[in-house]
Amino acid sequence: MYHSDEIILAGFGGQGVLSMGQVLSYAAIIDNKETTWMPSYGPEMRGGTANCIVIVSDRRVSSPIITKFDSGIILNQPSMEKFEPAIKKNGFLFYEESTVVYPPTRDDITIIKIAAIHEAELMKKKQVANMIMLGAFLEVKPIVTMDSVLKALKKVLPERHHHLIPLNEQAILRGKELALQQLHLTI
């Protein structure tokens, strides 16, 4: 039996949802895994929401288009409404606390609430909220190695932003801590 992780990442345009997915995908190929990154483009995107499906697998990914997900990383209310029902039973749902007004209610999945924007503001760089979310996800689902994630950041971030890599790394580590705290609260 092969292993595959199917993840939906969704939020507003500008929150870094697509690049968060790319970091995950790039880390996967550095780890010698198979991956697809499938963005939404077109009418949905023009309405202000952005999402991408990332699949990380031991073997060649069949369909890049899927409707049920092992995990969701959700950064706004419309995406929560759309994707909460699409998480598989026993799956994981990570969401950003301040942008999701009505928290998810399902009891057959693990829900992890992260105050990513608040934490990013404490770090004086609002843009790293996405990396805090990614860190939280990786703490619970270590599907790629941290080493590869750091290498992937270099590939995904344009060169003019490379001086921000240490800050992004810090954000990922902070996300991991927050997820750990949340998990203890849940259990």
Binding site: T35, W37, M38, P39, Y41, V61
Partner: peptide, 10 residues
């Protein structure tokens, strides 16, 4: 098609 054009893979 548009999906293969827009999606990323190894």
């Amino acid at each position: 098609d548009g999906a293969l054009g827009q999606m990323m893979e190894k």
